[in-house]
Computed example of a mutant assay.
Amino acid sequence: MNLLTLIGIGVVVLLFIYLFFYLIPVSLWITAIFSKVKVSLGSMIGMRFRRVPPRVVVESLITATKAGLHMTTNDLETHYLAGGNVPNVIRALISADKANINLTFKQATAIDLAGRDVFEAVQISVNPKVINTPNVAAVAGDGIQLVAKARVTVRANIERLVGGAGEDTILARVGEGIVTSIGSAGTHKEVLENPDKISRLVLQRGLDAGTAFEILSIDIADVDVGANIGAKLSIDQANADLKVAEAKAEERRAMAVATEQEMKARSQEMRAKVIEAEAEVPKAMAEAFRSGNMGVLDYYKMENIQADTGMRESISKGGEKGNKK
């Protein structure tokens, strides 16, 4: 046998050894045996072909068995193939068992597949979490704005983690409750004197309904006095009313000017008609003389009447001036 043949045989042997130990994790199998966990070599080889890391499944099964939990490799493989985090589920089940929290493997896997951190949820169930709300601005009955900030202590509700609303919903509901509580106060001084009144009113509303949390307490951390919203609104309303009044006054003035111009136009039209009618009088009198319907005596009589009428008008005007003096 030449050198190249020996090298080829050596490469084949090394490749065989690598494939053997890759497909059959002997060290992991031995660890399982000493941990009193029954996992066959055939099961591990099947995990390789199913693209499931044997170490993840076997080590998680060893951890669960040592903690007194009972489950099979098939359960862990199914959860891994579904896209779950197997080690995180095992840690959550162990923590729940130690804290006497009723959490089954089915519930844990459902919470994990729902996209929530099941281990963190168990921790929040044991150690409640404090959520700080952003600044919430509201206006009291006297128009003074108050800016409040609260601390909400919540505990995870394992039974409602799947399908329950999250922290954003809690914050939104608490903010709405704070606004309602401040708005129902007669004056801002009532709120400043008794800020715990806001907490009581908000807690009575049952804001944790339909959420993945249980609200334990709501504590008002800070209340600051803001702007006088009522005064600003009154000023804005007064300015608006002033502009409306000015617009109406301008409208009335424009209507008065238009009416005056219309009256002048009518007066000029009437005067033109009078002048036109007076121009027709001499023509009518001439026609009456020609037709014999009017004589000289009639003409003089009409002149006397007009002169008498003019004299009376001048006398009456003189009398009015004397009375005015």
Rank of each mutant, 00 (worst) to 15 (best):
L216W: 05
F213I: 00
E193Q: 15
K232M: 13
L207A: 00
T211P: 12
I220N: 07
S234C: 07
V202S: 03
G206F: 11
K189M: 15
L233C: 07
K232P: 06
A212V: 06
E193N: 15
H188T: 09
A209N: 09
H188M: 04
L192C: 10
I235Y: 00
D208V: 09
S199Q: 05
V202F: 06
R200A: 14
S217N: 13
G206H: 10
E190S: 12
T211G: 04
S234G: 11
I218G: 10
I235F: 08
G186E: 06
G186H: 04
G230T: 08
A227L: 10
A231N: 03
K197A: 15
N194A: 11
G226A: 08
S184G: 13
G206I: 07
I220H: 03
S234T: 03
L216E: 01
V191C: 08
D224K: 13
L233F: 03
Q204M: 06
S184P: 09
R200E: 13
S199W: 01
I198Q: 07
I235K: 07
S199G: 11
A231I: 06
A227P: 11
L192D: 01
R200Y: 08
L233R: 05
V223T: 11
G186A: 08
R205K: 10
G210F: 11
V225D: 01
A185L: 05
G186W: 00
I235A: 09
D208F: 05
D219M: 15
G206L: 04
I218H: 06
V191K: 02
T211H: 03
K232T: 09
L207I: 14
G210M: 06
G206T: 03
E190Q: 14
L216V: 08
I229R: 05
D222T: 13
K189A: 15
I198Y: 03
I220S: 04
I220K: 02
L233T: 07
L207D: 01
L203R: 09
G230K: 02
A212W: 04
S199R: 02
A185H: 01
V225Y: 05
A221D: 14
I198W: 00
I220G: 01
L201W: 00
R200I: 13
I215T: 01
N228Y: 08
S199P: 01
K189I: 12
A227H: 09
T187W: 06
N194R: 15
N228R: 10
